[in-house]
Simulated assay, not measured.
Amino acid sequence: MIMSDRIMRTKIVFFLLPKLHLLDLAGPAQAFSTANDLGYGYDLHYVAEVDEIVTAQGVPIRASRDWPELRPADLIVVPGWRSPRLSPRTPIAAAGKQRLRAHHAAGGSVASVCSGADALGAAGLLDGRKYTTHHDLTDELAARYPKANIVRDVLYVVDDRVITSAGIASGIDLALHLIAVERGAEAAARVAREMVVYARRNGDELQESAMLRHRGHLSDLAHRVQDVIDSRYAEQLRLSDLASGAGVSERTLTRIFTTATGLTPLRYQQLLRLERAEHLIGHGATVESAARAVGFEDARMLRRLRARPLAG
């Protein structure tokens, strides 16, 4: 699903705070940058409350104080800063907190990596929601934000357009999830391959994307068939054609695919369709239009799948 020049690109704004961890920033920035290089339409921006941020690793980073104009489809990401202990006061000014609140109130998404969750908490965005953070910080953040619901030992959590991740390399996991939801499973798979990362998820909310969730196996044949389904999930794919393309019988394909992923090829395709349809519905599409967009002839099948989600 390569983006057309006529489609408005998604802005990803990294809000940089003092002593941020390089990988908390570099991981998701690389994922979104790679997605943009592959034609999936992302514009990256780096803003801060000062002109220069010195990272926890001692590398200075120049940033802009001027925020770009944001739409609801855009994302603000707050990378984490030095841990394992939180600072007594969250290093974010009142104006920064208001930026986060206003963007979310306007329908936008906000995300954090590691201790970046502290900034979301200070802005009041964690209250009443589930979230996660680095395991060294869970007790401190749980005490600091008692109205929020900490989820321990998971890679990331999504709750009402507030997306939090565990920290360090899990920022890549978070970015791949968002790319899969917004641009499709094929896009996330291509980015993961370009970055030479192992696309495997675990934890709360099934860690969302079916493509990523069912890629943690070593079957080359299953991966090749998943590549086909990922790129053509909205089409009518016959098992016989998938098997022929893989050079095996239908029975062999079903056995190997199910052993590797836990799903039959058809159930895997349906799960991709369901997740993409849920994303479209969450952004204002009707059930009928979402069903057509993901390849269902009418909305009845989508309604059945939404009522009884597939296992996986």
Rank of each mutant, 00 (worst) to 15 (best):
M1H: 08
I2G: 07
S4L: 06
K11C: 02
F15V: 13
K19H: 09
L23R: 02
L23K: 01
L25C: 12
L25N: 10
A29K: 11
A29Y: 14
A31R: 10
S33V: 03
D37V: 06
D43M: 03
V47Y: 04
E49I: 07
I53D: 12
V54E: 14
V54R: 13
T55K: 07
G58K: 02
V59N: 00
V59L: 12
R62I: 13
S64G: 11
L70I: 06
P72D: 08
G80R: 05
S83P: 00
L86S: 11
I92A: 12
A94L: 12
K97Y: 00
R99F: 05
L100M: 03
A102D: 15
S109R: 07
S109E: 08
S115A: 15
A117E: 04
A119F: 05
L126H: 06
T132C: 12
T133A: 09
L137H: 03
R144A: 04
R144H: 06
Y145P: 06
P146E: 01
N149E: 13
R152F: 04
V162W: 11
S165T: 13
A166V: 11
A169E: 01
A169S: 15
G171Q: 00
H177R: 09
L178N: 05
L178C: 08
I179K: 10
G184A: 08
E186C: 08
R190M: 08
V197F: 11
A199G: 15
N202K: 10
S209Q: 10
L218K: 11
L218A: 13
L221G: 09
H223T: 13
V225E: 01
Q226R: 00
S240E: 14
D241N: 04
A243S: 04
S249A: 02
T252Y: 00
L253T: 03
T254F: 00
T259L: 12
L263H: 14
L263Q: 15
Q269V: 09
R273T: 12
R276Q: 14
H283V: 03
A290V: 10
A291Q: 04
A291P: 04
A299C: 08
A299Y: 07
R300I: 08
L302R: 03
R304W: 01
R304Q: 08
A311V: 14
